Amino acid sequence: MGEDWVYLALLGIIMALLSYIMDKGIAMCTNARVWLYRDLTTQPVAQYFAWVSLPVCLILFSAGFVHLIAPQSIGSGIPEMKTILRGVALKEYLTFKTLVAKVIGLTATLGSGMPLGKEVSKL
């Protein structure tokens, strides 16, 4: 019982680090989109396609990556976590592969500008 705080502290530090890395990745995607849009100021049609195409590519990448790597990471995960907390074991849900798919998928989706994932709670 005395060492539980160590695991909880490590879990908190790891999650804070992952959140920081995700925020930096999201900011990079957003800055790339704005930079591409501003770089094409003389061509409004190219600006439109730049503004639309990068988010679409990021969303398609996110959906394809998650579907190929860990399909169980699709969705919010709240119903699955409620099920696990009630004592039902879900096969391959709490794995490292699922964590990687969730982090990369959320970073690409939020970098596209869609208000999903952890951004919904900030609205």
Rank of each mutant, 00 (worst) to 15 (best):
G117D: 05
L54Q: 00
V100D: 01
T109G: 04
T30R: 13
T107C: 02
M1A: 13
C57D: 08
D4W: 12
T42K: 14
A108Y: 01
P115W: 03
P44L: 10
S19C: 06
A50F: 02
L8A: 15
S53C: 06
G111A: 00
V56I: 15
V34H: 10
W51S: 15
A70H: 07
H67I: 08
F96M: 12
E80Q: 15
P71V: 03
L11R: 11
L90Y: 06
D23L: 03
F65S: 01
L18F: 05
F65E: 01
L10T: 11
C57Y: 11
I78C: 08
S62F: 00
L68E: 13
I14S: 06
F96H: 06
G2P: 08
G2K: 12
L36F: 08
I84N: 02
N31W: 02
Q47S: 05
K97C: 06
R38W: 07
I69L: 15
L99F: 06
L68F: 11
Y7R: 13
A108N: 03
G111N: 00
L68I: 08
I74S: 13
S19K: 12
T41A: 15
L17S: 07
V120M: 15
L58Q: 00
G25Q: 04
T107A: 02
P55T: 01
P115T: 04
S121W: 07
C29A: 04
M114S: 12
S121N: 09
G75Y: 09
Y20I: 09
D39M: 15
S73H: 08
M114H: 05
L110D: 03
T95L: 03
G77M: 03
S53G: 08
A101I: 08
G2M: 13
R33V: 00
